[in-house]
Design a protein around this nucleic acid. Structure first.
Lengths: 341, 341
DNA sequence: ATGAAAGCGCTAACAT
DNA sequence: ATGTTAGCGCTTTCAT
């Protein structure tokens, strides 16, 4: 089955097969410049029958153009990021650009390596999660000379520009909504946070807004790893054992909140009368739960869309004006679990 | 902030800054060949202070080596694929290879385009989901001359080699386990299947094994789009309204099964006495549900690991012997919802 | 241990 | 409408 000569085909092969110069073949294959209908057909025919696939490496080197956009995100297993990705892909599909994903596992050094690898392919732009990066990463991004969009967070100073939400504000707004309903003995559960700046900022905003009203979080617990739903159950059970008087539980994401919800329902606890609940992210999953969980949208798809639009616009016109910071403003969605009756 | 000359740095710049030839700089940066300790240090120092990032495009063209592995999957939003990805990444991180993801949305033409784009970067290998591809895609893969691993499915003939499970067998085994428990009025719910060959094969295996015992699926329903959990609830409710006598519900994935489970619990139906349930995939989510759902593992991570190992081995030694087909054998996990009491 | 020359496969720029 | 030339930034190979 395999040919004797495994050498990949080149333009030259197509050129010889079709009897026109390499340059003309190149023109046909890229739809550039004027080529007569007849030669165009001959070339396409030859390319197709040979099974020629252009070598983008050579093309990119010669043209100094690489139609890739580096997308650097912490994880693919957190549904947040696939959703951002679909926003990005949707926009880029309308252009010549293509996303290439790098994953950091929330580790700054891994982010640095991923970035280095991606930049060494000379992409047309970078979309990167968060505003916190190592000095080396920031230096690389600045030196790259390409558009850089930092996404998901607006609490900080962007290298080039940023699209996201303010997680501090998100935390504050949820705190206010909870206090407004008269809850006052509040517990918090979340991921271990040194890794996740956005979760940390939400927590900071949350406690800060509570403090303004003289309220402190009664108990808190942080987890890492494992099934989020199961962790939500466990932590909730443990926390209520420690602090039976709690009247509200704020979770740093919807999955653990959903686990908490299922546990409380199992226990026959009245929601939201006896205990109120809130999560964060507004994940699709929530739709099928026994109660609509209070949450706040992280604007995932929209962030992806906007970020990709910025890159696409600046690839077209590098000197166009652009905003430094686009802050989206999600609202608290009280659902069924944040309403004292 | 931005330099006047936005031209990216080249080897030549580092060469001039450090006073050694480009060739020696290249050697240092790639850890190849003998370089004296002193020059090595000088070069690294110069490269770092300039902020030099090598141009892999030029490197790849010159060396005819590209350390990328193309990974072509239907979607990132189905948790199955991120898990396969982590299996792949885990293995490739130990090598010089890097995964690059392309997404097809289950569309054959999109798969063909993604493949063409990826192959035009001349990757070292391809990992691609499924055994069904367009003729053009198969031709490209064969002509590429690089190792190709088809994953997730073993019911068919691989182009080069394959790692996966038999979905027909998975369907058959679940059917047998259900019949063995004495259930006999069985309903099926799943995704619209022309798109998803593996779901289709499971269904075929399932009905076939039932037929062997003279049993037919009493009712079936297919969905597309929307929150899987909510769809599971809806479909289950509708199906039980149509067919109140059903005693078992088989779902093509765990998410809709979980939705069904939550619905049945809401209705106070006794599980698995009155109605038994089973899903497919063994997703992490299940751990936090009120009952352990019967399911079957799709061996996602392991498939990723094995596929990446095959690519890595064949990149090292293209002529080494290799198996054509690796079939993993998941077992039915009865959990709490597949046991007549 | 270091350097010089050639060329990877393509495209920009300039003929014709 | 088509062809020719030069060169993208690196690595291979062959000298020294």
């Amino acid at each position: 089955m395999r040919a004797d000569d495994p050498r990949p085909l080149t333009l030259r092969d197509v050129s010889e097969a079709s009897g026109v110069s390499e340059m003309t073949v190149s023109r046909v294959l890229r739809n550039r410049g004027d080529v007569s209908q007849s030669t165009r057909e001959r070339v396409l025919e030859a390319a197709k029958s040979l099974g020629y696939v252009p070598n983008k490496i050579a093309g990119a080197l010669a043209s100094q153009r690489v139609n890739l956009v580096a997308v650097i995100i912490p994880s693919l297993r957190n549904m947040v990021f696939p959703e951002v990705m679909s926003g990005i892909s949707g926009v880029l599909e309308e252009t010549v650009l293509q996303p290439v994903v790098g994953v950091t596992d929330y580790l700054p050094e891994k982010e640095e390596r991923a970035l280095y690898e991606m930049l060494s392919w000379r992409p047309s732009g970078v979309i990167i999660a968060g505003l916190e990066h190592t000095e080396a990463s920031k230096a690389m991004l600045r030196a790259s000379g390409i558009p850089v969009v930092e996404i998901m967070d607006t609490d900080g100073k962007p290298i080039d520009c940023a699209v996201g939400i303010s997680h501090r504000r998100a935390g504050r707004e949820m705190a206010r909504a909870i206090l407004k309903q008269g809850y006052e003995r509040i517990g918090f559960m979340g991921t271990k946070m040194p890794l996740d700046h956005r979760a940390r900022k939400r927590f900071e905003g949350f406690t800060q807004a509570l403090a303004k009203e003289g309220v402190e979080v009664v108990d808190q617990e942080f987890y890492s790893g494992g099934s989020a739903l199961a962790k939500g159950r466990e932590m909730t059970k443990a926390m209520l054992a420690r602090e039976p008087e709690l009247d509200f539980l704020y979770y740093s994401n919807d999955m653990i909140a959903a686990g908490g919800l299922l546990h409380l329902l199992d226990e026959g606890i009245e929601i939201p009368g006896q205990i109120g609940l809130a999560g964060f992210n507004n994940v699709e999953l929530l739709e099928g739960l026994p109660r609509r969980l209070a949450t706040m949208d992280a604007c995932r798809t929209e962030i992806g869309v906007k970020a990709a639009q910025i890159i696409a616009a600046r690839v077209q016109d590098p000197d166009a004006e652009h905003e430094k910071m686009i802050e989206l403003s999600p609202k608290v969605q009280p659902g069924d679990t944040l309403r004292r009756r």
